[in-house]
Design a protein around this nucleic acid. Structure first.
Length: 576
DNA sequence: GCCGTTTTCGGCCCGACTGTTTTCAGTCG
């Protein structure tokens, strides 16, 4: 095995935790591994932590895990990991992905029935063998069959934008339900994660049973997984699980907070509350006293946080990335909002691969109240996307000059989205590059580079004097393509040095730069832009998705160039 | 496994739903 990056190490630790669950290790040790996997997944400076032997300083990582992580980083394996993987067949581990099947059931299926793959398990369910085993029954066998069908038919992850589109009509259905008082999205969708596993809803009602009965029968329900008096789960076309929880209206703020998560945020908040003599559950915030516990009434989440001595923490920030500590000290940043944007840069027209003309894009931006728009069609090497040859550029520049002359309501910047060649060079000669108002440099190919080569390539592009924005830095496509492996600390350092902004690409398939890199970026005072990468007028509205992840990365208005007034933007583009 | 403002030992968040039981374990979030 070769050396691993942070995400691969997180996967290995998660795998170890799962194996230990099946073999029946100490549950707290298993939790430590799960927790470490989550922590490592969020680390953006693993190289330095390993090199400086500072892993033990990371909360949740102690001496043992620090050694394991360093070993995985350096050579991709260590004895306990190899041993554990040998102890459980891969097919057995796969069974954990089946909804309703956990480690205890897997152990019985494997040890007592000697079944070692999902396909063999399916056979055993169909032939009735599984239902005869102690602790299992006919209903369990049917449920497992359904679960296997589900994971074989659907990906178990969905783009945020896709999940939101499914959630919106369900939310509307519950909002107009006569027995529903309050209802909100919860879970990772409310926290604006870039990909989500399911849709969570929290509602309040005096007749939960009736709400649940109508919920499992609403339009679009493909199958019902659970149907209880206060909690139900269904599968909605095209294969997204929707969980709904109903509580009394008095309990709503606590339940909403609980089901918004993240799990890590909740655990941290509860642990903190417990130390101060409180208890938190989805039913309330309680003060523990000698006469038992007393409920502390809260009318909404703001009051709930206030009673805990905290500022209101926006859902996007609830990832246990330091938000509780910041809220304690009244140091939470004022997060950016869509209305803060004064204009935007990265978008395309029919001159390259856009669906709308230059005039239509400008009109679309104007109609949405923006004061400027930066046109950046693809550059000449991007043959796949109709990249512009120098002669075509001259034509577009003349058109833009005409628009700017004719009206003053919106200013149009002349730009390009220049491919970054495999060696880091930009795509036009310097004599042409210097005539643009701005250059967005982006990766569109040659993704199979190692981190060192890729980082050097991107840094070279950033260092070009014409480059003002690094577009979608890794080129990833969520749930579809990994993207370039980059050392983001180096890339951010380089961008700061050359006063280049890094883009948060708002296209829901990209959302690149990833919000997890923001924390290092803040330390270095990096500037960013939030760009729609619009290929149509409607694509401009993707900006909201970019705002969502920018909020997850704690970005404020001041850090984002396209919140600035036009004159200040013009000056920055001219390096004044 | 990790962690520490009564701690280096003894804790580690909390509750609903399901199915197979006959009082509860397993799973999920």
């Amino acid at each position: 095995m070769a050396k691993m990056n942070a995400q691969e190490i997180a996967g290995a630790l998660e795998e170890m935790a799962e194996i230990m669950e099946i073999t029946g290790e100490n549950p707290f040790k298993i939790r430590a591994y799960h927790n470490a996997a989550h922590v490592v997944d969020g680390l953006t400076n693993l190289d330095h932590l390993v090199a400086d032997e500072e892993l033990v300083k990371v909360p949740g990582i102690g001496k043992a895990l620090a050694e394991h992580i360093a070993a995985l980083y350096k050579k991709g394996h260590f004895p306990e990991y190899v041993q554990l993987r040998k102890s459980v067949p891969a097919g057995v581990l796969d069974m954990l992905r089946i909804p309703g099947v956990g480690p205890k059931k897997v152990k019985v299926i494997w040890k007592d029935m000697e079944i070692t793959s999902i396909s063999l398990l399916k056979l055993a369910c169909e032939r009735g063998g599984l239902a005869k085993i102690k602790g299992f029954g006919e209903k369990t066998a049917q449920k497992i069959l359904q679960g296997i069908q589900f994971i074989q038919q659907h990906q178990d992850q969905h783009l945020y934008s896709d999940a939101l589109a499914v959630a919106a009509p369900i939310l509307a259905f519950l909002k107009k339900h006569p027995k529903v008082k309050r209802v909100e999205l919860g879970g990772s969708l409310r926290r604006c994660k870039e990909v989500v596993k399911d849709i969570d809803l929290v509602a309040s009602s005096s007749d939960a049973k009736k709400v649940m009965a109508d919920f499992v029968k609403m339009p679009g329900v493909e199958s019902v997984i659970n149907h209880g008096d206060t909690k139900s789960s269904v599968i909605i076309k095209p294969g997204i699980q929707v969980d709904c929880r109903v509580v009394s209206d008095k309990e709503f703020p606590y339940a909403l907070h609980h089901f918004t998560g993240s799990k890590e945020h909740n655990v941290a908040l509860r642990t903190r509350a417990k130390a101060a003599g409180y208890k938190i559950s989805e039913y309330g915030l309680f003060k523990e006293g000698k006469g038992g516990e007393t409920l502390i009434p809260c009318k909404d989440e703001t009051e709930f946080f206030k009673k805990l001595g905290l500022e209101y923490i926006p859902p996007e920030m609830r990832e246990n990335m330091g938000e509780i500590e910041a809220a304690e000290k009244d140091k939470l940043p004022k997060l950016i909002e869509l209305k803060d944007l004064t204009g935007f840069f990265h978008c395309h027209t029919t001159a390259s691969d856009g669906k709308a003309t230059l005039d239509e894009m400008v009109a679309g931006a104007k109609a949405r109240g923006y004061g400027y728009i930066g046109i950046s069609d693809h550059s000449q090497s991007a043959v796949y996307a109709g990249g512009l040859k120098p002669a075509e550029l001259k034509k577009q520049w003349a058109e833009i000059d005409a628009i700017n002359k004719k009206q003053k309501a919106i200013y149009v910047f002349k730009g390009t989205e220049s491919d970054i060649h495999v060696d880091g060079a930009l795509d036009y000669p310097d004599a042409i590059l210097k005539n643009f108002d701005f250059v967005v440099a982006s990766i569109h190919g040659n993704f199979n580079q190692d981190m060192k080569t890729a980082t050097a390539r991107v840094c070279k592009a950033i260092s070009h004097p014409a480059c003002r924005i690094l577009g979608h830095p890794t080129g990833r496509l969520l749930l579809a393509r990994e993207g370039l492996p980059l050392d983001f600390e180096q890339v951010i350092d380089c961008a700061v040095k050359h006063d280049v902004a890094i883009e948060i690409n708002a296209n829901p398939h990209r959302l690149d730069m990833d919000w997890r890199h923001s924390f290092y970026a803040h330390k270095k005072r990096l500037k960013i832009v939030i760009s729609p990468d619009a290929h149509s007028v409607a694509g401009i509205d993707d900006l909201q998705y970019g705002i969502n992840v920018a909020r997850k990365g704690w970005w404020t208005k001041a850090d984002v160039i396209n919140t600035w007034p036009l004159e200040k933007v013009k000056a920055w583009l001219k390096r004044k």
